[in-house]
């Protein structure tokens, strides 16, 4: 058992899961916004990045890690709600490219503003968890206190979102507003509020993701920290199905594992190439996502 756990394959699987839950979380936050408002939010990485800077760096002088995390998430909620109200609301019903362009513009502005205030130098966040791998029988195996923290947090967030949507009245209204806005309004559901809430939740999930990513000892926090992660998250969401929260999470984890093997056995520069390849092949085979149950929205 010990030998297996410290083997190269087991390390790759564990490392893959650790990265994969991050891709899954980004994909989940994209799906939340896509399902409620039909917009692929290209600033889904940058908005949480901003919240993380405000919460973890600006307030980092005054408070400890956990208080800063709470502040960052609250700031994330605010950014999400404010963005929906101010930037996104005028875009409903407009041609498809308008929200894409506006959110790309917002992404650019956020990254530039963050760099203007805090510079592009990576900031390391001091976490209460060690990034050094555990040892088993004298050999390291690819799991550290930090990666355990990352995996557990991701699972907690995913379960919380699932419970909210499946079992609460609020979740019922959120789903109804996304599926049938007019019918929902006729039943007294405040649909506009639900759309704002969808963005709020999504940015909250994103902020937790951004905190995990930038708490990583090896990455740190930079204005562009979420760019690459966003690309992987989008690939996971598209492969798993933009309509399918479960599918996109599963796709995120599976892609994380595959890419870990690619990075280990081939070359770290091949990772994104393989990810693109997975995206192309899966869109060819199952245009609406491998796990999507919704009827194909093909042309």
């Amino acid at each position: 058992m010990d030998i297996f756990l410290t083997s190269r394959i087991a390390s790759d699987v564990l490392g893959g899961v650790t990265n994969g839950v991050i891709y899954g979380l980004v994909a989940l936050s994209l799906v939340l916004v896509w399902r409620s408002t039909g917009i692929l939010n290209f600033a889904q990485g940058a908005m949480p990045m901003m919240a993380t800077y405000v919460g973890m760096i600006a307030f980092g002088h005054f408070f400890g890690y956990w208080i800063c995390v709470v502040i960052a998430i609250l700031v994330g909620f605010l950014i999400g709600a404010g963005t929906e109200r101010v930037l996104v609301r005028p875009l409903y019903g407009k041609p498809e490219i308008n929200p894409v362009v506006v959110m790309v513009g917002f992404l650019t502005v956020l990254e530039a503003v963050a760099a203007a205030i805090w510079s592009s130098t990576p900031r390391s966040l001091t976490t209460p968890f060690s990034p050094i791998d555990f040892h088993l029988g004298g050999k390291p195996f690819a799991l550290s206190a930090f990666s355990l923290y990352q995996i557990v947090t991701a699972i907690v967030v995913m379960v919380a979102v699932a419970v909210l949507f499946r079992f609460t009245n609020l979740g019922l209204q959120l789903r109804a507003s996304a599926l049938a806005p007019e019918v929902s309004r006729l039943l007294g559901v405040r649909v506009n509020r639900m759309l704002t809430l969808g963005w709020t939740l999504s940015t909250g999930v994103g902020t937790i993701t951004a905190i995990l990513v930038s708490s990583n000892f090896f990455t740190g926090l930079t204005p562009q920290v979420m760019d690459g992660i966003f690309a992987f998250g989008f690939i996971a969401a598209a492969v798993g199905g933009l309509d399918s929260p479960v599918g996109s999470i599963v796709a995120g984890v599976v892609i994380g594992i595959i890419l870990q093997f690619v990075g280990d056995y081939v070359n770290s520069n091949a990772i994104i190439l393989v990810a693109l390849f997975i995206l192309i092949v899966s869109l060819m085979a199952r245009p609406n996502g491998v796990f999507s149950v919704v009827k194909a929205r093909r042309v």
């Binding site: 009245n169 019922l172 209204q173 789903r175 109804a176 599926l179 049938a180 007019e182 019918v183 929902s184 309004r185 006729l186 039943l187 007294g188 559901v189």
Partner: peptide
Amino acid sequence: ARMGIAHVPEGRGVIGEFTVEENLRLGAL
């Protein structure tokens, strides 16, 4: 709608992706 004016739209407007009970719960909210 919250004042108690219920509109049953043409084409019935049930949410197909919801179960019967979820549809009813939505009405009762």
